[in-house]
Write a protein that binds this DNA or RNA. Structure first.
Lengths: 230, 230
DNA sequence: CCGTGTATCTCGGGC
DNA sequence: GCCCGAGGTACACGG
């Protein structure tokens, strides 16, 4: 990792063309050849960047550039696409390098995948006597989160969201339409399960005959603990 | 802007909980109080971060932490949500500050709007004998990108995307449903035009009788150049 | 202020 | 490898 603070301008050509006028910025050069150009504002997104895999090479400034005050220039090119980023440096204010080693990486906890896992284990939360057929049941337009059967053996397609909004109801509707054409599955009942269901989503779902199910994450996790600890 | 290279561990609690085990990393502290935690890999996204508006305050390490080798700790709290990020520092390897000033910002040359403009000019790409009615044809639920007529005079509604995905098909479907209720327009044929159409989107579109049209941006731009240069 | 649509999205998982 | 869904999405633009 090399960190350079410099007065510079930047030009990018790839999916779009973009230009950064001359200003003081922080350039972060990672070991994989990638580069981030950060200013003192914005959020975590750099003003401009090049994602790996890419290579950084020095460019020889021509006479015009030297006359304009450019003391150094870098060309960062992507290895697979034609993306190109050029940093023109007017002054280097700080330049330091550090060996950071390989990062152990982020450990995350508590997302949608976990909800799906829990509901698959506790499928009777969908209704008494329900049984799991499989998670991520594939259809030509994407995977249904959970396919189950109710006590009578009828198919139940379950879409799980952390926050249930209209998009999720649309998604489930598409699956249901397709699955109901399959004589082996039809008729398929839809269940929209989420930790929180927006009123508009609930209205739309119920209007389409889709059942809504609120999930209590803490309670479900508690159940799991009970199952695993004893 | 303060840049700290340090041996540290990080804990985050907010929408999710996350933990970064002890390792050498780069900490970028922006003037608005926000912080980015970067490693030497990944892309422009930090391992962890806090977006503005937020405040950074030093935490006094307790005995256990001091015994564990923590020499300093920071608490970064979001001003509106309950998000909290804690950086525990075992060793500071480098610490520097710079006044970067306000950045003039990125100047983009877009592509998205240009596609619509080009297709309106080259409307026969939709089909022989097609004529443009108008761009951004307003409906009660939003503007259709292009309304045209085919060689027989029948209405054609065109939705344009750079990348055609399922959402775009849904959007066009809603427009078509509405427009087909208007006796002046009906029947309206749907055309889903994009530089790239995902298989699932194509499947859904064709299932709904919507025609898919691949757009070649370079070719279309080339046509335009020919028109404008000579 | 909030919703909507886009993104050089990034990131992870399945096939 | 591609394709797809999710995101602490971020971000601009419109109402």
């Amino acid at each position: 990792m090399r960190i350079v603070v410099a007065d510079c301008s930047v030009d990018y050509a790839g999916r779009l063309s973009a230009h950064l006028p001359r200003a003081k910025r922080v350039l972060m050069l990672k070991n994989d050849g990638s580069i981030l150009v950060h200013s003192d504002g914005g959020s975590y997104k750099p003003l401009n960047w090049m994602s790996p895999p890419c290579t950084l090479a020095p460019l020889e400034p021509d006479e015009d550039q030297l006359a304009a005050g450019i003391v150094e220039a870098w060309e960062v090119t992507h290895k697979k696409t034609a993306d190109r980023l050029i940093v023109s440096i007017f002054e280097i204010i700080q330049d330091s390098s550090h060996d950071l080693g390989v990062d152990p990486g982020l450990i995350k906890d508590g997302v949608e995948a976990h909800l799906q896992e829990l509901l698959a284990e506790q499928i009777d939360r969908v209704g008494e006597g329900h049984t799991l057929v499989r998670r991520e049941y594939m259809t030509p337009i994407g995977p249904v989160d959970i396919l189950a059967r109710d006590a009578t053996g009828a198919s139940v397609a379950i879409e799980i969201k952390r926050r249930g909004e209209i998009d999720g109801v649309e998604q489930l509707t598409r699956y249901l339409e397709l699955m109901n054409r399959d004589p082996v599955l039809a008729p398929v009942q839809g269940v929209f399960a989420a930790q929180e269901i927006k009123p508009q989503a609930r209205t739309l779902a119920e209007d389409r005959g889709i059942r809504c199910l609120l999930l209590d994450y803490d309670e479900m996790r508690g159940m799991e603990d009970k199952n695993t600890l004893f």
